[in-house]
Amino acid sequence: MTSVLQAQGLGRKYGKRWALRECTIDIPAGHVVGLVGPNGAGKTTLLKLASGQLEPSAGGITVLGGRPAGGPAQLAKVGFVAQDTPVYAGLSIADHLRLGARLNPRWDATMARERIARLGLDPTQRAGKLSGGQRAQLALTVGLAKRPELLILDEPVASLDPLARREFLQGLMEATVEHKFSVVLSSHLVSDLERVCDFLIVLVDSRVQVAGEVDKLMATHHRLTGPRRDPDRLPADQHVVSARHTDRQSTYVIRTDAPIHDPAWTVTQLSLEDLVLAYMDKHTADRRVALEVQR
């Protein structure tokens, strides 16, 4: 299977601060990829690197086998819907569709028109007068009608109310089923991604914590609850994601490919949200320790 996105040691610095570092991932084609992490984790940076809006400070990235924004052909293959779904406030919806038609060789005018009609939007209306949800739908329509092989969406639903979120994601899903393209979308909320993604990347503090197909992630992560035990007494093939201890009890979230036979543990299935939170928690726990040591 071919890759839509390959990064090796990818990093990007703003001044002295690394917004993204040592990012090595390989996303196979045909997935809806969720990129999740807290605000400021580097999600937008990674997506901008993938769309060629930013140049890497370190490492390399190829998207659909080419250099991001390397030329008109590469740009035509990758669609990008930016954070807050910007549109030209002074132009009408019809103008936006015309813009797409003029600037994209593979523009699907019929699809764009039908989509706008299905959403019940008036093509003569100015984009500046649309609601947040309608504006997001317009930006998505422009992104979809470009007929990209990969569509990148940066926090597309962040500013939408729950109903508009559902409609937006539903529209996106219908389009992926119909036109067979890969999607990478970011969010700081797992619940947004849970329904639509089959591949997940967790990005915390400018590093990729884990990346993989959702099914596989769910099958390899477990929560262990039992009598208090130090992490170094766990088997070597069990990687601790997060750990919590009370006086008597320990709770671990671990990653392992092997089955768990230790009868002392109560093993529970994690939800996707728990899994992501465990990775974020691990990070904050590290930082807490570091702070305490400093004191």
Binding site: Q53, A69, P72, L75, F80, P86, Y88, L99, L103, N104
Partner: peptide, 17 residues
């Protein structure tokens, strides 16, 4: 300021053009 550069520079046209 409007963020629309992210819209227009991601169409199939280079920034130079």
């Amino acid at each position: 300021e409007a963020g629309t550069h992210l819209l227009v520079w991601n169409q199939s046209i280079t920034r130079g053009r």
